[in-house]
Every structure is written in C-alpha cells, then in structure tokens.
Design a protein around this nucleic acid. Structure first.
Lengths: 187, 187, 187, 187
DNA sequence: CATGAATGAGCGTTCATTCAT
DNA sequence: AATGAATGAACGCTCATTCAT
C-alpha cells in the first residue's frame, strides 16, 4: 500500500504538480480514504521527500557504477552517464519532473538527507571532468565546476521539453548530446 | 502602484513560488489591501502572465537585435546570445526563475500570447545553428534542434544553481559556456 | 443621469437580481465611474427603494383613477384594475420583477415610505370587493381580505411565468383572468 | 448532520434569503465549522438544489395521489389539491419561500432534475381543468393553461403574505380559495 | 460633476491534518 | 489497518463605499 501510494503520487505530482495535487486526489485514485494515507506517511511533505530520495538514490547508484568501472576511460564514462540521465528522464519522466521542479517544497529536515546526494552527483561529474583533464583526455579551457553544470544543464533540461512520442528518439538524443559535449560546435 | 505590485510579486514569486505566495503576502509587503491588488489586476493569474510576457519579450528583443546584426558571423552571434542569457539570469534572477518554473500556472488564454514568443526564441537559436552549418562555420554532426535545446539547457540551467555572490563571476561563467559550446570537451 | 442610472438598474436588477448586480455593473453599462453613482445615490439600497417607490406609486395612481370613476360599477372597476396590473407586468416586466422579488432588500427606513402604499393598494382592492358585496353585485361567500389576496395572486403571479413572446397574448390573459375571477370554474 | 444542515439552511434561507445567508451563518447556527459543511455538500448551490428537489418532490407526490384517486370527481380533486398547497405553504413556509423565490440561483445542471417536476405539477393541474371541462363539470370559458396559472397564483401567492399567526386560519383560507375558484365573484 | 484610487469586511471554497472508532 | 467525521487556517476574489482631487 505504501508503495502504491508512492507510485500514484508520482504520477499525479508529475502531471499536476505537488501543490496542485491534494491528498484527496491521491487516495481517490487508489480508492482508499485519507486516514489510510496518514497511516503510512506522516505528511504530504514526507511523501515528497521519499520520492526525491528514491530518485536521487537510484541515479546516484547508476552513476557510481559507471564511475567505478576501471575498464573504461573518462570519455566513455561521460558517454554512459549522459545515457543514464537521458534514459531516466525518458522512462521516469514524472519522477524527474518532480525532482527538478518540486525541490522547493521539501522541508529543511528532509533536505538534510537529499541535498548531500544531489551535491554528490554533481561533484562526481566535476571529478570526472577533472580526472579527464589530468589524464590528458579533456581540454583544460574551462573551470571543471562550470563544465559539470553545463553538462547537467544539457541533460536535465530535457525534462522540460522532451516528448518521447515526438520526432526525436531517445538514442538519437543521447548520442547527439554526447557528440556535442565532446566536440562542440566549431569546425 | 501597478509596477510596484509587479516588482514585489516578482521577488516573492521567485523566492517562494507562485502558488506559495498569496495575494495577501504581496499586498502586505507593499502595505496596501487586497482590494488594491484587484483594482490593478483582474487575477493573480493575469499578473503571472504579465511577468512572463515582459521577460520573454525582453530577451526575445535582445536576441533578435543580435541576430539582425549583419556585421558578425554565426559564432559571434552565438557568443553574444549566450552572454545575453547569462546576463538576464543573473540580473533578473527572480524573473528568470518564475519564467522557467511557473509556466504551468498560466492559463490557456494567456499562453496564447506567451507560448509563440517562447517558441520563437528557441527556433531563432535553431536557425542560427542551421545557418552556421550552411556557411561552414559549424559542424553538421548533430540535429540542429537537439543542439538548440542543448545550448538552452546549458544557459537556462543556471537559474537553478547559479549564485551571483558565489565564487564564479558572471563573465567567467558566460565565457566558459561559450568556450565549451564551441569547442567541446575533447582534446 | 439620475434617471439613466435608474433605468439601467431596473434592467439589470430585473435580469440578474439585486444582489447579483454590482454597482460596477451598473456604471459599466452607462460608461461612467462608481463615483458618479454615489453622487446621485447615497447607496445601492436607496436606488432600489426609489425603483420600488416609483413602481407602486404608478400602479396605485392608476388603480385610484379607476376606483374614483363614478360612472362604472364594481365589476367594471375590477375588470379595469386587472387589466392595469396585467399591462404593467407585461410592459414594466423588469420593474415588476424587482417589486415582487427584491422587497426584502429594502431597509426599514425606506420601507416606511413604500409599505403603506403597498398596503393601500391591497386595501383598495379589498374595499372594492366589500363595496361590490354591499351593493349586491358580488357574492358574500368568502372574506373580502382573502378574496383580495386571491385576486392579487392571480395577477401578480404572472410576473413569475408570463412570457409576452409566448403563445398567450396580453389581452387574452387579462380577459381570461377577469372571466375566471367573476364566474369561477363551476358550471 | 447532513439533515441538520439542511433544516437549518431552510430556516435561514427562508428568513434572510439564499444569497444573504452565508455558509458561515449556517455553520455558526449549528456550532460546527465550514469544513463540516463542505464535507456533506459540494457547494452551497447543491444544498439549495436539494432543498428545492425535496420540496417539489413532496408536493408532486401528494398532488398525484389526489389525481390518481378514482373515487372523486374533478371538483373534489381541485379542492384537495388547493388544500394540499395551502397546507404546505403554511407548514413548510420557509421551504415554500425558498422554492418560489430562489429558483434563479440554481445552476443549469441541477435545474435539469428540478424543472421537469415543476413543469409536471403545473401540467397536472392544467389537465385536471381540461378533464373537468370534458366531463361537463367546469365551464369552458377560458384557456385551461391560463386557468391553471391563475389557480396556482392564488395558492402560491400565500407564501408572500400569509401569516399563520394572523387572523386568518388555515382552514378558512383554503376553503375560501376553493369557494372562490369554483364560483367566482359575481352573483 | 465626475474620476480614480483605495479600503475593509466578507464570501465560497480548499485542504492538510487529527482522531475516535 | 483503515474509516469517516470534523477542524481551522488560509486562499482567491468581490464589492459597497469613501474621499481627495
């Protein structure tokens, strides 16, 4: 039941927004009453925090799996991470929307568990860039932190506009991103 | 007074969010009553739409000024557009936040005036990429629409994390973005 | 201007109701501002009272003109009064609606001028019935006050359902009423 | 509780009017909070519609019971229907007031259930008159529809003026109405 | 005469949350 | 484990009225 509530909430929060989705909406969808909701969650807030936590935990795991692979170079790691992100934004579209859009509704208390993971994810990417520079794969023209934010911007922005049923296929999108990130625009 | 309400609302919507800011919050901040608010705006919705409209109108104007300059090449145009965007996200930080975050609260009716401008902005960027490919400045490795979204992702994402009082200066950020966009990561 | 406001208000109060019509609605219709309204009327209440006063004054005058005619008998007087009422309900439909429907919104103070006239109108009708009984024209089977209310009920109820553009013509209606009032149903 | 809200609302709507009675007034009277009101009714509108529905349903049932009685003639049926109406207007005075006065505040949606019954009631009366004419009990001097409206006018108008604590007793009123309806005024 | 800005009280409605059962 | 009744605070919005100009 707890999981059912979470999955239903992800769909509703993603579609209509956190504030715009009432607890009543959620329990109506499942066919139970509000009492049930508060039996499993102490607040709407906590539910949102859990959704965030599961999402960041999942992509952080996948990212670290790539980063810990000793058999591939920085370029290949970057390639795989971009693909992971694009995959998640497509296949967990509603979770991604919630993650990028509704962070502001999470209380200080819950942020304490989520923010470090968010930060870790970004820092890991920055370290990958730094490492790639150190081993001569990447240019050293720009601050690694800026580069990490730029790469995240490219992928994360997809949640804002990307329509899986539109003309751009997931594979083409991810490969386009990688190509652009690696080679830039100039001839 | 109308302008005062708008400026105050931009600050509050940016800081706390549209739904989370009540009309009462806005008028309290100014020291008038709710009646005054509704004397100048027919709804909170309309106010939000106006904020969006002013923002997109402003950056669209600046973008087209750059694009219409016959004395500079595509690379230079791209450089200037990235700088315009970074400048706006820094100096109109709250408006930018509202623009990227609160679109979903704008009614159909008001969207009719705003959406075309949003779309135009993105299309203009795509055309700049296409033109740059046609005249041999840019590589033709990736679909121009994907590239336009990627570039917008880089700049727009700044609204999410960039802190003007942090260690990264605006100039360094914008120039870092341009360098990365043009040359990519690989050596 | 004062008259313009009254005429416009009659239309709007009749169509939408007193409470449902705002002072703003009225002045919008005329193209002036609320200040103007309050220059001519001290309150919305007062305006309503004036409308009532004009209406009752008008039909009371017409009623008394009939009653004071020494050349016609009670039956003829009744006939003419029913026709006056039917005429007013058709041709001053909105005023009639307001008169019958919105009495409850008139303040004590203003009622002091209107109620006596309303009462007078009914009393005059009762007296006509009593006189008709006294001079042998009418039966003395029912209390004259009940009869006066019954006759008023027949005519006034028209405001509720009568549609001048429907199949029943004004003349047919008034004459039907008179026939029924005089002869009843039974063979 | 739902019924308590309805009964309280009937008293308040009847006394002060629908628009003039706030949900706050209703719940204050009962000693609960507004939340409770909206737990039982989806809107103030819906509550009004329910009051109307119960009223018309009740008198329509009673009317049809009389009409379906095969042992009495048209005159007797008319007599009983007038008495039913007078009884209701006296004993459900506030419901009757609401029914005749506040129809205009009922939404299209709810009217769909109420209007047909209102119409049915009037049509049944018209049919009774027509039948009475056909079997020779009643004169055929006036259109049956006009007669039905006239009879309804007599009885319904009572809601406007009749004071059960005044000098006229219910029985005297109803019998006076019947006498007048059947025999008219003229000797 | 008329305007336009502002007020303040109130309204219908929503909703996260509580709690006895 | 789940229900259903109830709360209370807030929200967007309306509107009769005032008043300096």
């Amino acid at each position: 039941m707890k999981d059912k509530i979470m999955q239903t909430s992800i769909q509703l929060f993603g579609k209509k927004g956190f504030t715009e989705t009432s607890v009543q909406d959620i329990v109506n969808e499942i066919g139970v009453t509000k009492g049930t909701f508060y039996y499993y969650f102490t607040s709407k807030d906590e539910l949102l925090a859990m959704i965030h936590y599961e999402f960041i935990n999942n992509i952080l795991d996948k990212q670290e799996e790539v980063l810990n692979n000793p058999n591939i170079d920085s370029k290949e790691k970057l390639d795989q991470i971009v693909k992971v992100l694009t995959y998640e934004i497509k296949h967990s579209a509603q979770s991604a929307r919630i993650f990028f859009r509704e962070m502001r509704h999470i209380s200080e208390e819950h942020l304490a568990k989520i923010s470090p993971k968010r930060h870790q994810f970004r820092k890991n990417l920055e370290k990958l860039v730094t490492d790639g520079m150190a081993n001569g794969e990447f240019q050293e023209h720009v601050r690694p932190d800026i580069l990490s934010y730029a790469i995240l911007g490219i992928t994360n922005w997809s949640y804002f506009w990307y329509d899986p049923s539109g003309p751009i296929k997931e594979k083409e999108l991810a490969e386009g991103y990688v190509e652009f990130i690696l080679k830039g625009l100039l001839k």
